[in-house]
Design a protein around this nucleic acid. Structure first.
Length: 598
RNA sequence: GUCACAGUGGCUCAGUUGGAUAGAGCAACGGUCUUCUAAACCGUAGGUCGCGAGUUCGAAUCUCGCCUGUGACACCA
């Protein structure tokens, strides 16, 4: 490298570092100012409140009024009534008289509250600059510090169709993965396939009795399901079928070629079918290690349990007693020597710890299994693994149909694929009706239809049960995914129609408009929303926020003309752009696509 | 029976750490497209926050009891 080149590099490097320095400095400065809007309020109060009330107490007492009519922060004076021997509303009135209103739009009292109104122009200028410069990094945090977090999710059973129940686990897990990524963790999405167990014995019996290779290949899952359902029906009157099934599963475990070949074939066909659904949902996995993967890891686990003196015999089975925790015993090995669900999960938990050295390990599994996870953690704890505390069961409520639990065995399932197809068909109809000139109709219909189903699943608290209702799931009006998508599409449409993009570099983005105020405040809330969603493993926090932001923005632009050539144009466009950035990010965190037009 | 979770307008649900007249969306009724996509916006009507005590200046929110629903409760996963 000659001298000239060296100089050139130096120049590059130094100008780059200056740029980085300025950018970071600016972002930091802006963020400080935003965070300080509450701090400003605290300080204003502290100067006029009695000394025995600490800054911390004031911070905790300050609340955000439900309505902007009552300001942006409010301080209730009730607790001062006793010590000051005065009525709360008198205290509030006195405080308002003493408070230095500098930096606020105004400070007034309403009854017993002191209400602080922030300087809208200043606040909006700061927040819009922040969002426009940080873009999709807005709201990022480093809480996770790159720690691995395996997420056990989706986990459908081989040879059975994916039901709405699997949808829940899949989309909740997927969304949590995205949310915690934003918080600095590294999720490892594991599809813990149900690919082992006695049901395969049943399936083989059913296939051999009533099936054919051609039939299975034509429509694998539906036909395999058909055999399975028929097996259960016929076994009611012919109990000897159950014995046959057990024998076939035993053959699998003993390595019988015919049994294993069938099993491998079923598994392969099923995975290919599942993949179609995952593609539509935009969900990928880092591992497909299911139950079968742990077959050869069971002995070690059982040996460890035994070595620690935890294994007991009871009624012919081997168990770990958990009665001191008010839990029923964990069945490690059946009377016939076969292992069980919890044995495999113990092996999996230990494997994941050893392989990923996780900081947390999540299981997105229905709440009917909460007992199982309590036992799992308890056994691990007894084995001396303190990291059992890092295991979290992310439970969710079950989906019923007509108030009844769905059951694969009885053939009462809601097929996810049908639901998605219905939703997409309906979306297509809507597009033909409302926007017939749209270019990529099918692609948009897919995004909207699937988005509606996914959003519907995520918008309520995980643990809520819900009764399946097709009309409700594929609804496009009101509090739905398409509503958020539509709001974003319209925002983008405005930006396309704007003759300028000067707002991207404008210094002044202050927007002193009460119509826009709620939206602006919502933009500022986004980072704490992501954080809360992550702490609670609750995608619905993001979904509800997205609805709130969309609604507030819809209200704003239904009443205000954005594309007007005046001094406020840059700020308004900056707001539209910021809203679209955050709506897209929110939808992204939920695993819902955001079409540019619809 | 034991344990867990839930109970908010006709339906589906919101409601950070207890706070100001309990909020939305569907459905119902009425209004708004010559003006940035009406999948939108505005308005009207609709609630003893399951019931009863307790704590508190103050409870949908915390504690206790009861009622109702759902789920789990040893060889399924």
């Amino acid at each position: 490298m000659d001298l000239n080149q060296l100089e050139w590099y130096r120049g590059k490097i130094s100008s780059l570092s200056i740029c980085i320095f300025i950018c970071i400095g600016r972002a930091f400065f802006i963020r400080r100012k935003n965070m300080d809007s509450k701090q400003l309020t605290v300080q204003a109060l502290q100067k006029v409140l009695p000394d025995d009330i600490s800054e911390e107490q004031i911070t905790n007492l300050i609340e955000k009024p439900k309505s902007s009519d009552l300001g942006d922060y409010a301080f209730p004076t009730f607790i001062l009534a006793k010590s000051l021997h005065k009525a709360p509303n008198m205290i509030a009135e006195d405080l308002v008289g003493q408070i230095d209103q500098d930096g606020f739009e105004k400070v007034v009292n309403t009854g017993a509250y002191v209400n602080f109104f922030l300087d809208k122009g200043n606040f909006s200028n700061n927040i819009l600059h922040t969002v426009l410069s940080e873009k999709e990094n807005y709201g990022n945090a480093d809480e996770g510090k790159g720690g691995n977090v395996p997420i056990d999710m989706s986990s459908p059973n081989i040879a059975k169709p994916m039901s709405m129940g699997h949808l829940r686990s899949t989309v909740i897990g997927n969304s949590i993965a995205k949310i915690i990524t934003k918080l600095g963790y590294k999720p490892i999405k594991i599809n813990h396939l149900g690919d082992w167990g006695t049901q395969f014995g049943k399936l083989i019996v059913g296939y051999k009795k009533w099936g054919s290779q051609a039939e299975v290949e034509a429509d694998p899952i539906n036909n395999l399901l058909k055999y399975y359902v028929r097996f259960h029906k016929e076994a009611e009157t012919q109990p000897e079928l159950d014995d046959e099934a057990r024998a076939w599963f035993k053959k699998m475990e003993d390595g019988d070629q015919e049994a294993l070949n069938l099993w491998t074939w079923f598994r392969k066909l099923s995975l290919a079918e599942f993949q179609k659904v995952y593609d539509r949902l935009d969900v990928t996995f880092d591992s497909y290690n299911g139950e079968a993967f742990y077959n050869d890891k069971m002995d070690d686990v059982i040996k460890t349990i035994q070595d620690k003196g935890l294994l007991e015999e009871s009624r012919g089975a081997e168990i770990v007693d958990l009665s001191e925790l008010d839990l029923s015993p964990a069945l490690i090995r059946k009377t016939d020597g076969a292992t069980l669900y919890i044995t495999r999960d113990l092996a999996a938990a230990i494997y994941r710890k050893n392989t990923y050295h996780f900081v947390k390990s999540l299981y997105v599994v229905g709440s009917e299994q909460s007992e199982h996870f309590k036992k799992l953690k308890a056994v691990l704890k007894k084995m001396g693994y303190d990291w059992s505390d890092d295991i979290h069961h992310i439970d969710f409520g079950l989906i019923t149909n007509g108030g009844k639990k769905l059951s694969t065995r009885k053939g009462r399932v809601i097929l996810l694929e049908n639901v998605l197809n219905d939703a997409v068909d309906l979306a297509k109809k809507q597009i033909e009706e409302k926007n017939p000139d749209l270019k990529n109709k099918d692609e948009v219909a897919e995004a909207v239809g699937v988005g509606a189903v996914v959003f519907h699943d995520l918008k309520n608290e995980r643990r809520d049960n819900f009764d399946f209702n097709l009309e409700e799931v594929v609804r496009f009006e009101g509090e739905t995914g398409p509503y958020v998508q539509y709001t974003n599409a319209r925002a983008l449409s405005i930006l396309r129609k704007a003759k300028t993009d000067d707002y991207q570099n404008a210094d002044d983005l202050s927007l002193d408009d009460s119509e826009a105020w709620d939206t602006i405040k919502l933009l500022q809330q986004f980072p704490e929303i992501v954080d809360r969603a992550g702490q609670k493993y609750e995608p619905s926090v993001v979904a509800k926020y997205a609805l709130k932001l969309a609604k507030s923005f819809n209200q704003y632009y239904a009443h205000s003309k954005i594309l007007t050539e005046d001094d406020g144009l840059n700020a308004r466009l900056g707001l539209v752009k910021s809203v679209s950035i955050i709506l897209q990010m929110s939808l992204g965190l939920l695993g819902v696509r955001a079409p540019e037009e619809m």
